[in-house]
Amino acid sequence: MIKRLLLPFLTVFAFAGAAHPQQAADTSTPDGLVKSVVNDVMTSVRADKDMQAGNIGKISALVEQKILPNANFTKTTQIAMGRNWSKASPEQQKVITDEFKTLLIRTYAGAIAQIRDQQVQFRPYRGTPEDTDATIRTQVINKGEPIQLDYRLEKTAQGWKVYDINVLGAWLTEAYKGSFNTIANQQGVDGIIKTLQDRNRQLASAKG
């Protein structure tokens, strides 16, 4: 179930790295940050054949360097967990966040290999300097077909951070909330941890 939920989001998210290079963006604005990350990922992947072939080590390093510093993954996990987040101890929350992040990175490896000539079109952002939450709307053009891909960001003391993505009208956190609720209702918070850990072990074995 988790793999089925992840692939549509991560595949399109990887395509977002295939935008054509543009001049340096102003990362102090939410749209500028997204454009900067997109272009950085594109440049890195197109210059490295190993990442295009799905090298998990190099892709993990890319994600750690280019994407995670610009993301609030704890908030992503908290929203996806919904009411189950408050039921988890601080130790469980950390484990779930780490395992969820690892799962996304490992799944991301397969999507990275598909980056070729896709392009991204950014729709105009009409926010104000006072905004603390923003949605950046884009379209990924893949073989002539437009795919909706939006980013939700929040303004923090460290700058703008991405915490959710929307593909074809479905937000990643909402898609996961139902899955996590089902597991928690049947097996508790520990069941979510076990499901994530089992999936990560399977992906690690497949890569090995």
Rank of each mutant, 00 (worst) to 15 (best):
K3Y: 10
L5M: 05
L5Y: 12
L6T: 08
L7V: 14
P8E: 05
T11S: 10
V12K: 01
A19Y: 02
P21Q: 01
Q22H: 09
Q23M: 05
Q23S: 12
A24P: 09
D26K: 05
S28L: 07
S28G: 05
T29N: 03
D31A: 13
D31S: 11
G32M: 07
G32R: 01
V34A: 07
K35W: 04
V38N: 11
V41M: 02
V45E: 06
D48E: 03
A53P: 03
G57A: 01
K58L: 14
K58E: 12
I59F: 06
V63T: 11
K66M: 11
K66L: 15
L68I: 14
P69K: 01
N70E: 12
N70C: 08
A71S: 13
F73S: 00
T76D: 01
T77Y: 01
T77M: 01
I79P: 02
A80I: 03
A80D: 05
M81G: 02
M81E: 04
M81F: 06
G82Q: 07
A88G: 04
P90H: 04
Q93R: 15
V95Y: 00
D98Q: 14
D98F: 00
L103H: 03
R106D: 15
T107A: 10
Y108F: 13
A113Q: 13
Q121P: 05
P124R: 06
Y125F: 15
D131A: 15
T132G: 06
D133A: 14
A134F: 05
R137C: 03
T138K: 05
T138V: 06
Q139N: 15
K143M: 10
E145R: 14
E145K: 15
Q148C: 06
R152F: 07
L153C: 10
E154N: 13
E154V: 10
A157K: 12
A157M: 08
Q158S: 14
Q158A: 14
K161A: 04
V162G: 01
G178E: 10
S179L: 14
A184Y: 02
G188N: 12
G188M: 11
G191V: 04
T195E: 15
D198M: 07
R199Y: 11
R201W: 07
Q202K: 05
Q202W: 04
L203S: 09
L203A: 11
A206I: 09
K207M: 14
G208N: 13
